[in-house]
Write a protein that binds this DNA or RNA. Structure first.
Lengths: 255, 255
DNA sequence: TACTGTGAAATGGTTCACAGCT
DNA sequence: AGCTGTGAACCATTTCACAGTA
């Protein structure tokens, strides 16, 4: 029996769920009906054991001898991730990056809704991005409370980040995605994730300068390659012209 | 003796290096002369043992009984990260995100130089961002080769990402920072790091929906708090008015 | 005394390998 | 025959705890 919750879910597992979700979404749109852990692993750039172990934390979703039903598994993952509900988020700091995130496609379809944009600069307050008005920081706490905002995104300069985080925490926001290059100090019950563009560049540069110190990476494979490297027809980009849903590696049709 | 290279450096260690660097940069600008592993750990949001183990991979930089010399340690970390050299990078896909990254401060001071901007859209080709002209993708390989580009940044839509990655690899670019929501398939000697904004949001949402499954986080502390929680004077924002460089937790002056 | 550097122990995540199901 | 789910083995990283040094 799978470990039906109460248990801790490893962070690396949770990080991989959105990747599986994306692959399954694409497979589903191509009319693929079932997929094995090995194929899903190829497409996600991980290995098959990891896929199976990851999924086993949530339930028994596969069928021995066949694999996983794409649409069913997709539904389960979306349920776990809460992609079905709409979580309100705010972005604080509407510079170029804040603008870019506000306009990105990452919200719709991933279960998030832009509940507010905030900036301290009087010159941008009042502007609209995607139909959402930019408000002054003084409105932040009020909006977070009234809209029950779950996640706050910080895209301010580093010097302002801690102050904004304090406002968010005070307003009851329980999760923060921080793009500012600063370490935030928040109560331990608040979740924080840090996205640091220049740190990522530096990590790449480091391993480039010291190849002998580099970890060995697992090679990923495109969906098309995942299919062609295993027995089965090539993955067509025109979804299922034969009408029926297919397994990713069923026997060649018409032979 | 510290393990003087040849050895593998754990990825988590490399990821923390830029964080230490940033903290030390700030300490240095405040005129702080020395810092203990415990204080650096507080400011970086990690624990002291981790700081010491991380640094031990590179050399013996500390002084028992005293701690680390801020400027010396900063210099060593910058040397390890190669922050002293200027690495040329290109950005492919100059939408809102590409624009934002091109304009960001993350390049200068982190050891990177914008060597080229590329987009497939004829409408933006020819525009300038930060004095760098946007060129067509057909110029990509040529520029990468002639400028010896080390790192390629992909900020295209997901569908274009693999094709761009192929171009970069062909042109000899050995490291890719991928912002597109797609798993890239590249030769194993090419380093890839993936920054996925909406996946990060989903991870936060997941742990918010399942608090019982959440990992327990280590609480960080601001530089100011790091100092005040330990015996010593408050960290002043006006750098060293007493002229001399100070330890972060030296005894109270004038008592 | 106060701190670093580091073996050794503990933890946590990954991979193996196979029993069991379809 | 083929593939899942999962204990057990393995490996990497973190944390402990302390000998050694300024």
């Amino acid at each position: 029996m799978p470990e039906r919750f109460g248990r801790r879910i490893p962070e690396p597992t949770v990080v991989r769920l959105p990747v599986y979700q994306r692959v399954l979404l694409e497979l589903s749109s191509h009319g693929v009906a079932t997929i094995s852990s090995a194929e899903l692993a190829d497409a996600a750039g991980v290995n098959a054991a990891k896929v199976r172990k990851d999924l086993s934390h949530f339930g028994t979703y596969g069928t021995p001898g066949t694999g996983y039903d794409v649409d069913f598994l997709l539904g389960q993952i979306q349920r776990e991730l809460g992609t079905d509900q709409e979580r309100p988020v705010v972005i604080v700091g509407i510079g170029h990056l804040g603008h870019a995130l506000a306009r990105s496609q990452g919200f719709a379809g991933s279960g998030f809704r832009l509940a507010g944009l905030f900036d301290s600069d009087h010159k941008v307050v009042g502007e609209q991005v995607r139909g959402v008005r930019i408000r002054p920081i003084s409105d932040l706490a009020g909006v977070c409370r009234s809209e029950k905002v779950a996640v706050g995104i910080i895209t301010t300069p580093a010097v302002a980040a801690q102050e904004v985080a304090d406002h968010l925490v005070t307003a009851g926001v329980g999760a923060i995605l921080n793009f500012a290059p600063a370490v935030l100090s928040v109560p331990s019950e608040v979740q924080v994730r840090h996205v640091d563009f220049s740190a990522e560049l530096q990590v790449l540069a480091f391993y480039q300068a010291h190849p002998e110190a580099a970890p060995t990476r697992e090679a990923a494979v495109t969906l098309r390659e995942a299919r062609s490297r295993r027995p089965g027809p090539a993955l067509s980009m025109e979804a299922g012209e034969n009408g029926g849903r297919r397994a990713l590696s069923e026997g060649r049709p018409g032979t």
